[in-house]
Amino acid sequence: MAERRFSATRLPGFATIAMLAFLALYIPILTLVVYSFNSEVTMGNWGDLTLAWYGKAWANADVKDATLRSLTIAGLAAVISTTLATMAALGTTRRRAFKGQTFIYVMINQPLMVPEIVTAVALMILFGLIKTVTGVHGLGYLVLAHSAFCIPFAYLPIRARLEGMDLTLETAAADLYASAWATFRRVTLPILMPGVIAGAMLAFVVSLDDVVITEFVKSAGQDTLPTYMLGQMRRQLTPEINAISTGLLLVTVAMLTAFFLLTRKND
């Protein structure tokens, strides 16, 4: 009889541990979503089922303003970081293994390794200096900061896609009279596209969610949705926050689902 291979699913207590882990992951979110429909202001009481908080959040000019800013920054940061990440991925995979390759990977993925709070303080100081010297203010600083820390999130799926690509395809394109540019445009990029879109979505979601760096870099009146929510917490906590969170959750889940569909192997 064939020997059974080791499988974690057969260990005693596997199902229990898995269940507990899932509960730990989803109960808080579920609570948040449920309470966003609670008509009572305090968490302790449950009143009626209501959509009033969604209405209130929707009508709130500050929320609208912060949402718009969040989407603008995330959109720009996604485009910029994905473009740079695509170039970086092409640069690091389209060649033979070289000395210091790991070092380059580490350099590219710096934002994943340096504590975010350190980057935040560093950017605050540097941007503060630049603002004082040049007198230039604006959203540009936030866009730049977001683009930078989004690069590794865009880079990783693109690189994975590139590494899975058969290089013979590029050779075949060259054999069929395609110039280097035409090969990139007509063969490499289309095949890479799912990775690029996945990378852009991941970057978008990561930017949308950022608090730490944004909080430190933003000037007055540059609240994004997360920093606005943080600010609200200091005053009075209402289920409006729950409603906004649920909305943010919906957008993120939708994008991540699309991300996983795009990075499935069988396309």
Binding site: D166, T168, T171, A172, A174, D175, A178, V187
Partner: peptide, 28 residues
């Protein structure tokens, strides 16, 4: 290679996966 009137049939075929049969054939 793109300047030579020589074409190759690859061992792995190297067909373009994002194109149809007809688009593959018309690529060159």
């Amino acid at each position: 290679p793109n300047k030579r009137p020589v074409n190759t049939v690859f061992q792995s075929y190297a067909l373009f996966p994002h194109l149809t049969v007809a688009q593959n054939i018309s690529f060159g």
